[in-house]
Simulated scan of single mutants.
Amino acid sequence: MRKSALLALLLVSGVYSKDGSDKDLLEKARQFFSPLPKSFPSEENPITPEKVKLGRLLFFERRLSVNDMISCATCHAVEYYYASPAPKQMGALKLQPRHAPTVLNSAGQFVQHWIGNRKDVEDQALQSLTGPPALGNPSRESAEEKLKSIPAYVELFKKAFPKDKEPITAENIAKAIGAFERTLVTPSRFDEFLKGNTKALTEEEKKGLKTFIEVGCVSCHNGTLVGGTMYQKFGIYEPYWKYTKSESIDEGRYAVTKKEEDKYVFKVPPLRNVAMTPPYFPDGSVTSLEEAVWIMGKVQLGKDLSKQQVRYIVAFLKSLTGRLPEEARKPPILPP
């Protein structure tokens, strides 16, 4: 067989890559990424089966809201990979100021919310009890009293927090929901690749991974979650709204810190399951993943990515779509 014909055969079969071996790509990828753990543990809130069982119920519990209409799952819906399909979701009393991202794998982030005003998933759950764009209760005590009136929850809280004299507290509500969210881990074929199975990704996905690294996406989107590890200005090279056509301009962390340098700064979102969780960006202004990738090239990297580069990157991003844990695939039956 001629050398050129053999090379063509090896390229088609995936045994050989003219852009470098799979082993080289794997070693390069391991410099930036690592596989997902089985859960995201917390010293302050140890995960127990009893907490997780209770937290799963509370996550879907509409009676936890002021009007019995809203639950965590309203904005983080199972059928949308625990995210919202709306640019901005309506809470119990008020429209949310930003797009509700997925809570899958979110416990692994360094902070919660687009502007980092929640330190962890427990803090996020606790603040949601009284937040008008969330559950909207007039006080934490009112949420506690509702659950105390439901016999099944009284027993479930006793089992989840056996050492507490009064188990049903706002803090324990948050701990239970947090424990559940800490188990929402979705491993994908990319994790198999990182563990050494270079056949886990297609050739196009490997080209996408290579492109993702080479053009500079990896400078912000790295780590276990492919993001969620830092803050960054949205619009380094050009104003983001020039391309997103946003109806209003969000000043990001400036709302928290009031520091000029924090204008338009947001938490870098994780890209796990990104293909399943449109729309994109803090205001949910873009519905197409391809368009979102191209916009990021323009405003974050100062590059006009080609259609081929965008196609490759999107192929790689789709390999980050993971498997939902069995207990997270459908809503539970709630206590009467």
Rank of each mutant, 00 (worst) to 15 (best):
L184V: 08
R98G: 00
N197G: 04
E171G: 09
K88H: 14
N105V: 10
Q127Y: 12
A100I: 03
N105Q: 12
A200F: 03
Q124R: 09
K163M: 05
Y153E: 01
V185I: 15
P138D: 13
D120I: 10
D164F: 00
P97V: 07
A143Q: 07
A125F: 04
A152N: 04
L135G: 11
P101C: 06
A73M: 14
R189S: 14
K158I: 02
E141D: 08
N117L: 04
A160P: 06
K119Y: 12
S142C: 06
A160I: 05
A170V: 04
K165T: 14
N137K: 01
P151R: 03
I115S: 01
Q109H: 13
I115E: 01
D191I: 05
Q96N: 15
F157G: 02
R182D: 00
Q112C: 07
P132I: 05
S128Q: 13
R118I: 01
C75H: 08
K146M: 13
E166N: 15
K148W: 04
I173L: 11
A200K: 01
I168K: 11
S128E: 05
T130V: 14
A125Y: 02
E166F: 03
E192P: 00
I150V: 14
Y81M: 15
K165F: 07
C75T: 09
L194C: 11
Q112W: 09
R98N: 00
T198L: 10
A92E: 13
K159D: 13
K94S: 12
D191P: 06
E192I: 00
S71G: 12
P132N: 11
K163W: 01
A107G: 09
A170S: 15
C75P: 07
S128V: 02
Y81I: 10
R189M: 13
G196W: 11
K159I: 01
E145H: 01
E79K: 14
P151N: 03
L184R: 05
P167K: 02
E166S: 13
A176I: 08
H76F: 01
V78F: 09
T186G: 09
V121Q: 04
A174K: 11
A200S: 11
L93E: 13
K199M: 11
G136E: 03
A170F: 02
L95P: 11
C75N: 08
P162R: 10
H99P: 04
E166T: 13
N117Q: 08
P138G: 08
L135C: 13
G196D: 14
A125L: 09
Y82R: 07
R118H: 12
I177K: 01
V78D: 05
Q109E: 15
E155S: 12
L126C: 06
K146R: 12
E166A: 12
R189Q: 15
Q89L: 06
G131H: 14
A100Q: 13
K146G: 06
P167C: 02
V121C: 06
K119P: 01
V78L: 09
T186F: 04
N197C: 03
K195W: 06
V185K: 06
I168T: 13
P151M: 03
A134I: 02
Y153V: 02
H113I: 00
I150R: 00
Y80M: 12
E192Y: 04
P97Y: 11
D164E: 15
E171Y: 11
Q109P: 08
K94W: 05
H113K: 14
H99S: 10
T198G: 07
Q112R: 15
G91C: 06
G91H: 05
G116A: 08
A152F: 09
G178P: 02
